[in-house]
Design a protein around this nucleic acid. Structure first.
Length: 575
DNA sequence: ATCCATGT
DNA sequence: CAGGCAGA
DNA sequence: TCTGCCTGGAACATGGAT
């Protein structure tokens, strides 16, 4: 059992305890242990097995949680969780994701009604029964109904990061079969879409068929949906990600990859082109329409070539101009991970990060970056102990001092400064001016009317120290809609003032999706790609941001943090 | 006005 | 629930 | 060195119910 799964069980238990109204310190302990286990460098299961070691060495884990961990590893659950699940249905945990319903509200609902499914909850609201409960009213019913609608839209979809990790794990496992030439994840994962519905794995090689055997025997498969000679599909993991594995002959591997990568719209357009050229294209290959002779199929390159197209990076395959561009040889040269020279949005223990400045810088150095910007929160985020003017200025000074010693990576002093409700920045200008890089972000009042939100952002852009608009749309994938404002107007103003748009690489944001990036670029916008890391391991998320930038047709020149350190410094310098 | 639960 | 501290 | 007792809580604003 992996640390992640253990952490999940602990987290669930904490949620259930909260609904049951148990001691808040105990709940906190469970949550603390969940987060520290999730990010723990060693496998808990190994420590438990080792006679000479104790899990209580891990800070935050004491005698009680140690035995809980043992229990979870042994049987996948713990007594407390089992008890609570007798009292509350497992859907209670789902209800927690409905906006407006917290632990208290859910407990109250269960006290009065015997419901177990989301549909029943929906019905309860529609029947105007929820408002009969104390402290609940018509407004809440509406809110819950809206949130349920959203919930239904997003079920069955998964974060890109989740699908990516699942795919990597599966690929590794399946490759152990031997006799496998290639395993590739196709579909929206390959196109780098922010959320993914299901996973398509394509396999070729002499033993491709055996791979299907191995797949259905995968320990995390929990429901086999079908299995034939060339294709098997199953639900994987507790989350129920549907995975299709297809075994393919070498000669049609490229055609299949092209086909299963999509998008559907892209494929329709490509096929239309093929037909016009006297071919037919399918997942089996590209054939001449008149005599069915195979023209291409082994590689994607071959297929696109034969159609008179340059090979199109999967991120662009949305039928939004990429085919024309490929035909005319004017596909953009897209940004790649290796172009990124510094991560310029991250947090430390000074506010809500989990590691020190030194640890973050060290981790960034190990990723090969030339520089980092440390950008902790400002004081409006009180719960994160955000920096006030005094601390910000002191921090800027501390960083100047740090850079005198050579630590193999350049550090810039930054701040993720809150944009207040009226568009003013949270800290005074003279304090901001001391910092190398000011990112302005909205963290509150996200439901303003569009006009008001637009004005707010426009006003924020007036701040002379502002260099970056952080997570500009505020969306949280599958959780919170982007806030609405006049994007184009804000883009134009930002361009005028030299403010960059952040492509926030954190997988639950991927803020600015590909479409917005592209339309901003067309209006002259420049960008940053940053992880918003709160932990050294989050620095790895950069890839997701780069993929998103690619979906927005960006090249390295569009992105500020591809510049070498010195040029980067000049670009952000205040006048 | 006050108090609570929720959310950031 | 963990961790620290007092008192044994 | 062990046992038992005590403390700790990321702050605040908002929207809505009463």
């Amino acid at each position: 059992m992996e640390n992640k799964e253990i952490a999940r069980v602990l987290w669930e238990t904490a949620d259930l305890m909260e609904i049951a109204g148990e001691d808040s310190f105990r709940i906190r302990s469970y949550r603390n242990s969940a987060t520290s286990i999730e990010g723990y460098p060693e496998r808990i299961i190994d420590i438990l097995k080792d006679e000479n070691r104790k899990v209580t060495e891990i800070p935050g884990i004491g005698k009680r949680l140690a035995s809980v961990l043992q229990e979870i590893v042994d049987r996948g659950s713990c007594e407390r969780r089992d008890e609570l699940l007798k009292k509350f249905p497992p859907t209670a945990l789902e209800f927690l994701k409905i906006q407006g319903l917290g632990p208290k509200g859910i407990a109250l609902i269960f006290e009065h009604h015997q419901i177990t499914t989301m549909d029943e909850l929906e019905q309860l609201c529609k029947d105007e029964k929820l408002r009969l409960l104390p402290r609940m009213g018509a407004k809440l019913e509406e809110k819950v109904l809206r949130s349920i609608a959203q919930y239904k839209m997003r079920t069955g979809r998964f974060l890109l990061s989740f699908a990516h990790e699942a795919a990597e794990e599966l690929k590794k496992y399946l490759a152990e079969t031997g006799g496998v030439e290639e395993i590739t994840a196709a579909g929206s994962l390959r196109r780098g879409k922010e959320t993914v519905g299901d996973l398509d794995l394509l396999v070729t090689g002499p033993n491709a068929t055996e791979v299907l055997e191995r797949f259905v025997a995968y320990p995390r498969v929990h429901e086999i949906l079908g299995r034939g000679a060339n294709k098997a599909s199953a639900k994987v993991g507790r989350e129920g990600l549907q995975v299709d594995v297809r075994a393919l002959p070498r000669e049609s591997y490229g055609a299949a990859m092209q086909y299963f990568t999509g998008s559907k719209e892209h494929n329709v357009a490509v096929r239309t082109r093929a037909v016009k050229m006297g071919f037919k294209l399918s997942e089996y290959g590209l054939f001449r329409a008149d005599n069915d002779t195979r023209v291409a199929g082994e590689s994607e390159q071959e297929v696109y070539d034969a159609l008179g197209l340059a090979w199109i990076p999967p991120e662009l395959r949305e039928n939004s101009g990429e085919i024309e561009a490929a035909g005319e040889g004017r596909l953009p040269e897209l940004i790649e991970l290796k172009h990124i020279r510094g991560d310029i949005h991250m947090h430390t223990t000074e506010t809500d990060g989990r590691a020190s400045l030194e640890e973050m810088a060290e981790a960034a150095k190990n990723l090969g970056y030339e520089y980092v910007a440390i950008t902790d929160h400002s004081k409006a985020i009180a719960m994160a102990n955000g920096l006030d003017e005094t601390r910000a200025v002191a921090f800027a000074r501390q960083v100047r001092e740090l850079n005198r010693q050579d630590r193999g990576i350049r550090i810039f002093s930054g701040l993720e400064c809150d944009i207040l409700k009226d568009g003013a920045l949270d800290l005074a200008n003279d304090a901001l001016a001391e910092l190398d890089l000011v990112i302005g972000s909205v963290h509150s009042h996200m439901n303003l009317e569009p006009a008001e939100m637009t004005d707010r952002l426009l006003r924020a852009l007036e701040c002379p120290s502002l260099r970056v608009l952080g997570h500009p749309t505020g969306r949280l994938l599958m959780q919170r809609e982007p806030f609405s404002f006049d994007f184009d107007r804000v883009v134009m103003e930002a361009v005028k003032r030299g403010v960059h748009f952040e492509i926030n690489a954190s997988p639950e944001r991927l803020d600015l999706n590909g479409n917005l990036v592209r339309s901003a670029k067309q209006r002259g916008a420049k960008f940053t790609v940053s992880t918003d890391a709160h932990h050294p391991k989050h620095l790895h998320n950069m890839w997701y941001g780069v993929v998103t930038a690619r979906r927005g047709w960006l090249g390295p020149a569009d992105v500020l943090n591809t510049l070498p350190a010195e040029r980067f410094r000049n670009a952000i310098r205040h006048n």
